[in-house]
Design a protein around this nucleic acid. Structure first.
Length: 458
RNA sequence: GCCCCUGUAGUGUAGUCCGGUCUAGCAUAGGCGACUGUCACUCGUCUAACCCGGGUUCAAAUCCCGGCGGGGGCGCCA
């Protein structure tokens, strides 16, 4: 017998197995309407307010919290004793009866008939109950798993999920095919941004900074419309609230377009759909985060790059038409656009040739400019897109003009010799979209497990 | 690549300028005790910290030097 006990690692840990117990209700589903019902709750001990002969256990699960009230004499003796042993973040199964209770803010509580300890928790490195002590973001990220248990932090990523889910849904309804392109690549797509080098057996390879070439090639391969939601890598030693070194890029690319306008039109409808669905499906999370999400009206405002420069110059900057809009400019535009156009979602179009990658279609209507756009949301660039060059000779010419040797990109350029469809597309930063939707200051907060200049764990 | 700031209990801070009751304060977390309606429970009590090394000085958390660590911004970009 003693040998058996030695091997029972559950008993050794002082805990029980869940066994056949399964959750009957989420905490949020315990309402006065189901008073009298027997429920099985599974979750964490959020707090235990131990008043001596009555204890109040706040049980938290994936969807919320509910109070479990444990009055001595009215619950079995062992239930009362076990409850006294519980620590914050202990994992428990609670069997009990739902009781309407005026004393509780939610008007309902659970009186337990049984409480089973499923796992123990040591002293926490960070407080999970919010509102007691402000914790540095750095410390929170070091303990990200615990940090994410906070309902508000968790809600950020449920909103993010919702935004992505419905953007994807819109594209699927519009004949886009989801593709998965290689993240280990041989060469840069755009120059500029630095690449992470990796050992590819005995050769040098790089982590993809963008799926750009591949998603275009898939249109040449006959897919018509494609999208990909995947990580991209930027080896820039930037350290700002808007940058991380690995982020999720939401890319789409569509063939048979008449111009860049078709791409913008697709994006605004996609975002409109996504925002609208998110306000409904993530209503609880948005409320928890105190966000009143405004669904931007379609069509979004369009402003030419030159006009944007004029606007920031009116605000005191001194930029020429070939200067890039820096974060300060985006901030200015973020303030001016709502006043001037009544919206915080604005396409800035027709960027100068020198500011855009080699594959961007030059403009016939605006000399020296491109058929391109950025989407600025609340003063931050969340999308970059354009009509792409589908004419082989022009593509070669543009690569040369940018100082690249087209021969190094033959895998990308050569297919354009054989009937490439006119096309365009965009890349949208998922974390940036999330942070702007939720009014988050630092992109790391909108990134599940951020990779920045020196963070590689967790 | 460039620039700025900063290291005090598990966490967040006060103290650092102007060295001396700092035997390092407070909050929160944690231990123990009390409490039958709490809801950031309350009350009592205890535990727990000056990044490392060197220097100046009668005296260093405080000033100086070096090391290590951390945070933020710019360029670039989503």
């Amino acid at each position: 017998m003693s040998d058996l006990n030695e091997q029972d690692f559950y008993a050794k840990a002082g805990v029980e197995r869940i066994g056949k117990d399964r959750r009957s209700h989420f905490a949020s589903e315990v309402t006065p309407k189901i008073a009298g019902k027997q429920v099985t709750l599974i979750g964490w001990v959020h707090t235990l307010r131990d008043k001596g002969r009555i204890k109040f256990l706040i049980l938290r699960d994936e969807r919320g919290m509910v109070q479990v009230t444990i009055p001595q004499g009215k619950v079995p003796t062992d239930v009362f004793e076990v409850s006294g042993q519980l620590k914050p973040e202990s994992v428990v199964v609670v069997h009990g009866t739902v009781v309407a209770a005026d004393q509780v803010e939610r008007g309902v509580e659970v009186i337990p008939s049984k409480i089973r300890l499923i796992n123990t928790a040591e002293r926490l490195p960070i407080d999970i109950v919010e509102g007691k002590v402000d914790i540095d973001l750095e410390t929170r990220l070091n303990h990200r798993v615990l940090d994410l248990r906070k309902p508000k932090v968790n809600a950020i990523f449920r909103v993010q999920h919702c935004l992505v889910k419905h953007a994807r849904e819109y594209l699927e309804k519009n004949d886009f095919v989801e593709i998965h392109t290689p993240k280990i690549v041989a060469a840069a797509t755009e120059g500029g941004a630095n690449l992470f080098e990796v050992n590819y057996f005995d050769r040098k390879a790089y982590l993809a900074q963008s799926p750009q070439f591949y998603k275009q090639l898939m249109l040449l391969a006959g897919f018509g419309r494609v999208f990909e939601i995947a990580p991209v890598f930027r080896a820039e030693k930037h350290n700002t609230r808007r940058h991380v070194n690995e982020y999720t890029s939401f890319d789409f690319e569509m063939a048979w377009i008449g111009g860049v306008e078709d791409v913008m039109s697709m994006e605004e409808k996609m975002l409109h759909h996504s925002f609208e669905k998110t306000t409904k499906e993530a209503a609880a999370e948005l409320e928890l985060l105190g966000i009143d999400l405004k669904v931007p009206e379609v069509p979004f405002k369009r402003v030419k790059y030159k006009e944007a420069i004029d606007i920031v110059n009116e605000a005191g900057k001194q930029l020429s038409y070939t200067d890039d809009l820096d974060p300060d400019c985006e901030h200015i535009l973020g303030e001016v656009f709502p006043r001037k156009y009544g919206t915080d979602m604005v396409f800035v179009t027709h960027y100068p040739l020198e500011l855009r990658p080699a594959y961007t279609m030059p403009s016939l209507t605006d000399e020296g400019m491109t058929e391109s756009f950025d989407l600025l949301y609340k003063g931050m660039e969340i999308t970059t897109g354009s009509q792409r060059i589908h004419l082989h000779n022009l593509l070669v010419e543009r690569f040369k003009a940018k100082g690249f040797n087209p021969d190094n990109f033959s895998f990308y350029i050569d297919p354009f010799r054989y009937g490439a469809p006119p096309h365009g597309g965009l890349g949208l930063g998922v974390e940036r979209l999330t942070m702007q939707v939720l009014g988050i200051d630092n992109i790391r907060e909108a990134t599940l497990l951020p990779r920045d200049r020196d963070r590689l764990t967790p």
